[in-house]
């Protein structure tokens, strides 16, 4: 053993090292995602693919098609909704599920926790990388939801900054939600997450119907406001299908910012609790 002599760590000290360390954590996640890219695409695409295929291709063909009250095709209503579900689901798949295993079963996260940056940085990296995956998921799902339906899907992007803002905020909020779940549950409870979190937030997330039409069920229209997916779907509706009635933009951006901040704070707190006793 020759060249192992002890020397000062190479890349500077303090905050410049925090940044290189953070980049190192991102690079590790990119490597893992590249290795698992095909499973990632299948996991991301299968649900929206089958959903649009059955409800917007098969149903109209067999005479069971339905459209919204104002004559909007179901495909047009689903376009923003299914993209928002795909964004949200990455938070669960990219953060919550791996994290709960890495904490409890294998302890894998602890090598990253020993990196020379504040522990909160490791948690924030998880959220940021999950957000990148969410954006990628949105890009994968978009063509499916536009091209598959047999009835016309009307979309128009007039406001790119709005679309970009909504996608980024929705992606960060999803990553933060994944962090909250991943730090709170044990690996054996993952199955429960689908029943307790994914299914309710999806079905009550204005994915398959616009929020505006819920005024027929007034109590539900107010109740769903606690669900962050509602703002993701409505924000994408405002950005992609502005002809469909949607929530005001200020409400969407405000609620998404608030959700990201609250879930992020809660998730980082949970992460610190799990890692430092």
């Amino acid at each position: 053993m020759t060249d192992l002599a002890v020397s000062m760590p190479r890349a500077g000290r303090g905050k410049s090292l925090w940044w290189s360390s953070f980049i190192g954590l991102i690079l590790r996640d990119v490597r893992v995602l590249r290795r698992d890219f095909i499973p990632f695409v299948i996991r991301t695409g299968m649900n929206p693919l089958l959903f649009v295929f059955v409800f917007t291709y098969v149903f109209p063909k067999i005479g069971q098609g339905f459209s919204s009250a104002n004559g909007t095709s179901f495909g047009t209503v689903l376009l923003p909704g299914l993209i928002s579900v795909s964004i949200m689901f990455q938070g669960i798949a990219a953060v919550a599920m791996p994290l709960s295993v890495e904490f409890s079963a294998t302890g894998e996260i602890y090598d990253r926790v020993m990196s020379p940056l504040p522990v909160a940085g490791v948690a924030i990296e998880k959220v940021v990388f999950s957000a990148l995956q969410s954006v990628l998921a949105a890009v994968i799902v978009f063509p499916m939801v536009v091209l598959i339906p047999s009835t016309p899907v009307h979309f128009a992007i007039h406001d790119w900054p709005l679309l970009v803002s909504v996608v980024i905020l929705a992606s960060l909020a999803s990553g933060a939600m994944g962090l909250v779940i991943g730090t709170a549950i044990q690996p054996q409870q993952i199955g429960l997450i689908f029943g307790v979190v994914v299914v309710p937030v999806t079905f009550l997330g204005c994915v398959y119907y616009p929020w505006f039409l819920l005024h027929h069920v007034r109590w539900l229209q107010y109740l769903v406001l606690i669900n962050p997916i509602v703002y993701m779907s409505e924000g994408l509706r405002a950005a992609l299908t502005p002809d469909v009635p949607h929530m005001p933009v200020w409400a969407v951006l405000g609620a998404l910012t608030l959700s990201t901040a609250l879930l992020g704070w809660w998730g980082v707190r949970g992460f610190l609790k799990r890692v430092v006793s």
């Binding site: 760590p9 190479r10 890349a11 500077g12 090292l17 290189s20 360390s21 980049i23 190192g24 954590l25 690079l27 590790r28 490597r31 893992v32 290795r35 698992d36 294998t106 894998e108 090598d111 990253r112 990196s115 020379p116």
Partner: peptide, 19 residues
């Protein structure tokens, strides 16, 4: 050990974490 990375990557990315 990071189960998602091979032996080389376990050491390589650890080095990257340290800048």
């Amino acid at each position: 050990l990071d189960r998602s990375c091979n032996a080389f990557e376990n050491v390589y990315y650890h080095c990257r974490f340290f800048g």
